[in-house]
């Protein structure tokens, strides 16, 4: 098993005719993702060539979901149109099939646009949003798998570790760390580092708790906000599997935004130290050196009786 995406997932690409959309639709199809079509307003009726198949471009998400039966959509549209694309996908999934997964890769969406998008999701309980400003979600398979996003597929392998991260390349680093000790992943999710976004750490942990194949989780946070503290408090009471945690930004100066919109220590709050302390208080195994995530995870798996050496 895995969470939210699997080999049977049918994926639509919003913005498929743009350069990013076509490039990543190709990479996703190559990996083994079932890309069933795309949406670009004004280009309905055209087709896009992907490796081994030609897929239709639709005028709207409603048309695309009705025609293809897709349950996942990934958004590569420019920032100023991205919030509308999220709302359109949410309404189509909700009305046609009662739910679906929306993965928004786009970076730089105005915060209040995201606030409005999230407002539209509140009465559609079957619809889940991952992102924006994130690498996406991937479930490696025995062969191929389901990759919905921009991550390099080949670094992953099917296994029993769940990975949740606010960062892009740091997620890949965590994946490489699990591989360095011979462990693969059930599902890896990049939730993004924007101040207003969809799925959070707790949603991911709750899903991993329910997934029988996930036996341990690596959780990667960063400075700013309180999402890590909230996740730690939730996990202490509700999560039964071992977690290894890292927080980026121990050396970040206060009051400076470190790349991601949400990565800022403001008013002395949101420091890495506070988050590490919350992790420790919740029984999360801390790796202060991201290069040591693999070794900490190895120790944790042995201690939990999940591995002999």
């Amino acid at each position: 098993m895995s969470i939210w995406v699997h080999e049977e997932s049918k994926v639509l690409v919003q913005g498929i005719t743009g350069s990013q959309g076509t490039f990543h639709a190709t990479r996703m199809e190559e990996y083994g993702t079932d890309v069933v079509g795309g949406v670009t307003p004004g280009k309905g009726g055209q087709t896009v060539e992907l490796p081994g198949r030609t897929v239709p471009v639709y005028e709207s998400m409603t048309e695309a979901v009705s025609d293809t039966g897709a349950d996942v959509s990934v958004i590569y549209v420019p920032a100023r149109f991205a919030a509308s694309a999220i709302i359109e996908a949410a309404e189509a999934f909700h009305e046609i099939r009662g739910g679906g997964l929306i993965v928004c890769i786009t970076e730089g969406i105005p915060t209040l646009d995201m606030v409005r998008s999230i407002g539209h999701l509140s009465d559609k309980p079957g619809v889940r949003l991952i992102g924006p400003n994130c690498p996406g979600i991937i479930t490696p398979g025995e062969q191929g798998g389901c990759k919905v996003g921009i991550m390099p597929g080949y670094i992953h392998a099917k296994g029993r570790i769940g990975i949740i991260s606010k960062s892009g390349t740091l997620t890949y680093e965590a994946v490489a760390q699990t591989m360095s000790i011979g462990e693969g992943q059930t599902t890896c999710i990049g939730i993004g580092g924007d101040p207003v976004s969809g799925t959070g750490f707790i949603d991911c942990l709750a899903a991993f708790e329910e997934d029988p194949e996930t036996e341990a989780v690596v959780l990667i946070g960063e400075i700013g906000g309180t999402a890590e503290e909230d996740a730690a408090a939730w996990a202490a009471d509700n999560f039964s599997k071992p977690i290894v945690g890292f927080v980026a930004g121990a050396t970040a100066p206060p009051g400076k935004r470190m790349g991601h919109a949400g990565a800022i220590i403001s008013g002395g709050k949101g420091t890495a130290e506070e988050k590490f302390a919350a992790f420790e208080a919740a029984g999360i195994h801390v790796a202060r050196d991201p290069s040591a995530i693999g070794q900490v995870l190895l120790g944790v798996l042995i201690e939990a009786g999940l591995r002999e050496s």
Binding site: T169, L170, G193, E222, F246, G249, T251, A272, P290
Partner: peptide
């Protein structure tokens, strides 16, 4: 000089470590 904000912060942290 790093690609990615999270990895850039992590690189600073490891230099310090």
């Amino acid at each position: 000089l790093v690609n990615g904000a999270g990895l850039a912060m992590a690189s600073m942290d490891v230099i310090k470590l």
